[in-house]
């Protein structure tokens, strides 16, 4: 790229018109379908604007009223948005811990020249597959398998492991376990592939000299692989966290939008969805979106810095 810099500059004047023509569709589409709605979202957050039954309330300017309402505890002393944020984070952590542990281990196994694992192509194809499956369909499948009259309950009863039907979909622990396992299953293959690329990007001579020095596998992992993998690992972790904050399809379908039991599995985006679909409460939905934007914005800064660093290299 550097080499052609001089040549390009000479010709630049007459061609810059084309540059603007070529980027125009992208920017026009971005301004109409993303930027304008985003600005409108922020604007909405300062207005009371919802439907109560058949009557439309507002829009009335309320300043920071929606934010205040969002962060005010209800009669039971619970701040809904914080509860849902906590649910979302808990569900993410429950899935992400095994996801990253397994992915890290798998990536090390796959890239180890000593183990020299065969059939990697096929194995990678299989473990990546769940990532492409429609999350709502996967959730419906899990529901169909684990409901009261589903095959799993039948199997557990017929083998005598339980003596009466266990309702997986109403018990807090089992609903969470199901959602977290699904997230794990859908994402560990993706993380494995990303981390593998990271490990393969490490200077191979480091591993060779460690081997000559007689360093053990654990020693190599903790003193070479892990520290040098840190940038990519943290990148993968934060993008996973950003994805986790947006968790919606799986808990929405598994709990039929109710976050059963007792809203213990309602995520932040499910709350947003309720504002938008049920009460058309654009004001509260706007305020919630702005909070989400701030949180993901801060997290994205880390990702952006990481990518900028990679890009320069």
């Amino acid at each position: 790229m550097k080499k052609t810099e001089g040549k390009r500059r000479r010709k630049s004047v007459s061609y810059s018109k084309w540059a603007y023509i070529f980027i125009a569709p992208f920017f026009i589409s971005y301004i109409i379908f993303t930027l304008t709605p985003q600005i409108l979202t922020v604007y909405n957050s300062f207005f009371e604007n919802y439907r109560d039954g058949l009557t439309q309330i507002g829009p009335n300017f309320v300043g920071l009223g929606n934010y205040q309402k969002l962060l005010t505890p209800d009669s039971a002393g619970v701040i809904d948005v914080l509860k849902y944020f906590g649910n979302t984070m808990l569900l993410w952590i429950l899935g992400a811990v095994p996801q990253f542990a397994v992915a890290l281990l798998l990536a090390v196994i796959f890239t180890s020249s000593r183990l020299n694992i065969k059939g990697q192509g096929l194995a990678k194809s299989i473990i990546y597959m769940p990532n492409l499956i429609m999350a709502s369909a996967f959730s419906m499948l899990v529901f169909a398998l684990f409901n009261n009259i589903g095959p799993v309950n039948k199997l557990l009863i017929s083998t005598g492991l339980i003596d009466k039907t266990f309702d997986f979909l109403t018990v807090k622990v089992s609903v969470r376990a199901l959602i977290a396992s699904m997230n794990f299953l859908m994402w560990f293959g993706n993380t494995t592939i990303v981390l593998m690329a990271g490990i393969m990007g490490i200077d191979q001579s480091l591993f060779e000299s460690a081997e000559i020095d007689g360093a053990g596998s654990l020693h190599v992992f903790f003193d070479i692989t892990l520290p040098l993998l840190m940038p990519i690992l943290s990148y993968a972790l934060i993008t996973s966290l950003i994805g986790g904050i947006q968790m919606f399809d799986v808990p929405q379908v598994i709990t039929a939008g109710k976050g059963t039991p007792n809203m213990a599995n309602t995520t932040v985006i499910m709350m947003l969805n309720n504002f938008l679909s049920i009460s058309k409460n654009y004001g509260m939905a706007g305020a919630l979106s702005v909070l989400l934007f701030i949180i993901t914005g801060i997290l994205s800064m880390f990702v952006y810095r990481q990518m900028a660093k990679q890009y320069k290299r």
Partner: peptide, 21 residues
């Protein structure tokens, strides 16, 4: 473009839905 890359699509959802309706 790099800066807007990570903004979650749900942030524009409120305005988008409102405009669509």
């Amino acid at each position: 473009i790099m800066a807007i890359m990570m903004i979650p699509s749900q942030v524009s959802a409120v305005g988008f839905i409102q405009l669509a309706y």
